[in-house]
Design a protein around this nucleic acid. Structure first.
Lengths: 150, 150
DNA sequence: ACGACTAAGTTCGCTTGTTGAACTGACTCG
DNA sequence: CGAGTCAGTTCAACAAGCGAACTTAGTCGT
């Protein structure tokens, strides 16, 4: 009776949930985007249980979001690097960031923001329709069957 | 030793993770966006354990993402409706959708898509910089301290 | 009036997952 | 030779998720 897996459901949200729904995982990815690579860097930044961190890093490697790369031979030591798939996941974190900033702070404003590395300008992520560039309208979008590809 | 809570961390991603990291929760929100409102509708759509569903709906109401509204008096029956905060969460699901569609199907394409309700056009969500409308560049964005608001 | 049905949960025994703390092993550095 | 570093593993206690059965308060058909 292990917990219900969603990773073979026919829905992108379900499969993504299977990953994100693992406690700590989005935070590990956040740290990876902040440039952390080594086991102990992740561990001390997050103060996560080491056993959990081991399991998560293993899974993220298996999923192809991180890569375990040796950075020295003796003693053998490995670090974890973002892959293209992992980097693409930034979009999801950005959407979480925006929603969290907008709705999860009641009185004050969040103490951390996203900035452009060059200009220092504060960046606000927004989810739009790729075609029109307009903010996605919840009320007009619906989930539908894909056109048959046969 | 209950599991580490992130809901008072000073980071929007952490707080959002605290919600999403609850198993089933994003799927419950997906179903809410598909128009489901009643307990048994959610239950049979997802085939989730009833006790878990009870706990999740309770939490989503407490967080202000759903509202529990009586739709009849006798016997008293309630349904769960999206609030503004809940509707805003669509952006996060859309980002998950896009990333899942792009990276979680290896051979074939996902069997479900997002469509515009009016035109039937397939919609692809994209995360952009609100200012420029450009796709967020992972490499130039960094996490920084907010300007002091004093 | 009686039994079947419905909706929205609750309860229960079992299994899996998370936690914090301590431990391990292979090295390096002074 | 002893202390330190890094990347984990092990362990026991506890929390959370699981499926199945049960409950409660009412309606409907005969």
């Amino acid at each position: 009776m292990r917990r219900t897996r969603f990773d073979d459901w026919p829905c992108p949200i379900a499969r993504a949930t299977d990953l994100i729904g693992d406690w700590w995982t989005p935070l590990i990815m956040r740290e990876a985007f902040s440039g952390r690579r080594r086991f102990d860097e992740f561990q001390s930044a997050l103060d996560a249980p080491r056993a959990v961190l081991t399991a998560r890093l293993k899974r993220l490697c298996a999923e192809g979001m991180l890569e375990r790369v040796a950075y020295q031979q003796s003693p053998p030591r490995y670090e974890y690097r973002l892959t293209d798939k992992g980097r693409a996941f930034w979009d999801v974190l950005a959407a979480m960031w925006r929603w969290g900033s907008d709705w999860l702070w009641t009185d004050d404003a969040p103490p951390v923001v996203l900035k452009d590395r060059q200009t220092g300008r504060i960046v606000r992520p927004l989810v739009v329709d790729e075609e029109t560039g307009e903010h996605l309208d919840v009320r007009t979008v619906r989930i539908g069957r894909a056109p048959s590809s046969s």
